[in-house]
Structures are given as C-alpha cells and as structure tokens.
Amino acid sequence: MKRKIVVAVTGLNNTDNPGPGIPVIRGIRDSQLFDVRIIGLAYENLEPGIYMHDHVDKTYQVPYPSTGSDALIKRLEYINSIENIDVLIPNFDAELYTFMKSSKKLLQMGIHTFLPTLEQFEERHKANLVEFGQKYEIDVPFSTSIFSEADIYSLPNSFSYPVMVKGKFYDAYIAYNAEQVKMHFNKISSKWGVPIIIQEFIKGTEVNVVALGDGTGQTIGAVPMRKQYITDKGKAWGGITLDDAKMLELTRKTIKATKWRGGMELELIKTNENRYYLLEINPRIPAWVYLAVGAGQNHPEALVRLALGEKVEPYSDYEVGKMFVRYSYDLICNIGEFEKLSTTGEL
C-alpha cells in the first residue's frame, strides 16, 4: 500500500522559463511508494501551477525571500497548522538561502528538507567558481565579480570579448564590448543586486547533468543531457539523454569532493578538444528533471525519501537517447479563482 505524505513545493512558475516545481511534482506523483498530497507555495498570483489542480492540491501564497526568514516561518507555521507538511522542496535559487537558514526551525515543525549545507551553497556560488575549481581540481572558466559600473573599465586585461555577464542568482548574457557589459550590468543588478559576475566565454557545446547527492559523498543518481534546442531565454526546449562516461565521472567527482547534499544541476561546456568546463552548479533540481524520471531515475522521489531519513540505493542506470520536448498549453480558469487567491492568499 502507498504511504500517505504531504509535500510542499515552490517554483510553480511553469512558464516559458519554467521553474522546477511542476516537473518535481510529476516525479513524486509517479512514485509507487507514496500517495501524496501536494501543497503549492506561490510567490506570484499567476504562477501557472496554482491553477493546475491535477498537480497541485492546494496553493498558499508565501512572502518573498527578500522579506526575510521570520516572515516566511510565520506563514509556514500557519500553513503547516492546516496541512501537516512532511517534506518541503524549494525550487528557486533566490529562496534557497532563506530555506537553508530556516531548515532547523522547519524540522522542529515536522517539516523535512534535503538541502545543501550553507558552506556547499556558498562555495559553489558563481562569484566563487574560480576558487571552487582550484580547490576541487575542476576546469572552470576564468571569472571575476564586479560591484559597480566603474569596475567594468578596470576589468583585468586577461579578459577578451566576448564575455558572459551573469547575475548572482539568475540571468546570463553575452557581451561583445564594454558598453554591452554596462547595459547587462544595469539590467541584472536592478533585479538581483550585486555582485555581477564577468566570465570568460568558452566556445563549445553546452551539456548538463541532473544529479542527486546523499550528503555523504555518494551520488544517488546522475543523468547527462544535451539541449537540442534553446529558447531566446537560454532554456532548453528539447533535450536528449547522453551516454557520456566523462560527464558522469565529473559529476561523481564533484559530489564526492563536496559531499553534496540534495539535488543539483551541473552546467558544462564541452569544447572541441573534448575538455569539460564547469560553468555553474545550480544547487537544486533543474526544471528538466522529468527527463531523468522518464529515463528511469526518479530524483524527486529519491529526494523525498532522503529528506524523510530513508536509506536510498543509488541508481546505476538510465535509458540513453530519451528525449523531452517542451510544449505550452493554455489553461482555462475563472476569475473567481484569481479573486480567491488575491484576496485570501489561498486557492
């Protein structure tokens, strides 16, 4: 018989730049072990997941991470008093810090999370990537952090254009000259603050790995993928699982060295000389995780089990050549639902 559990999930923004919430939910709903009630936690009132009642049983609005953890905890206490949440899976980069800081308090409320430690989270930050690469002997592009527009003109000579301009949490643009760097700097910093990371542009094919570490250094699952088509926002529209031993090795090495705890996505560039550069470690499950589920590795289910303290055997295999193709779909809903959410904060 399936076990009844309640899982709260953020990242219901299943838009053209999707959050991982809905794919994570699909993975958990596919589980043969759990009979799950899904509580959606939404920041904005048009996150599509709120209105996807097949996936999300009930949604509550929660305060933005920028408000601080006290407000978040207060709101979660209220939600938990009604829903009795077993596991909470945050899916936004920008909120992870707040949830990691709050994880002890959440556990006292009976809410389990399975997140990286603050140390893991900090050292893999884009701004710290160069040191990260040195420490763990992983190739990374040269990069530096800047804090003001003026810094753009004093960038080290070692940079040659084009360069990548990246935000602390989100957004990455390519710039071919200082003027473009300035434009992207202002655009990104107004949204996500400073620092802005200026990164060497490395030519090659972008490949990704979705992986899950159990916190002891063991890799529970890892599936490599190449994006087959990329939208103008840089998001994969279609992707295919790869048989690439080097990528898996790099993933295992990273997880072992950092004792990574939780879901992650490695963004890599494979150069024409067959070298792999680590561009970024996203400290959470990526939006394309359902490809891994489809290929035989249910990472969301495994993460829920790890959060609940269960011992999970590593996945040893996945199906190569599985593809995902994203599509969009127009949900029809009534203004009454929008009204209810806007006035009560619940739906």
Binding site: I335, F338, E339, S342, T343
Partner: peptide, 13 residues
C-alpha cells in the same frame, strides 16, 4: 464582499 474589484473594460483587478 471580500473587496475584490474587477473592471471588465480594462481587464484589471
């Protein structure tokens, strides 16, 4: 009654 206003002309709430 909950204080929600919908303007069908503009579509704003």
């Amino acid at each position: 009654d909950s204080g929600f206003v919908f303007d069908p002309t503009s579509g704003e709430s």
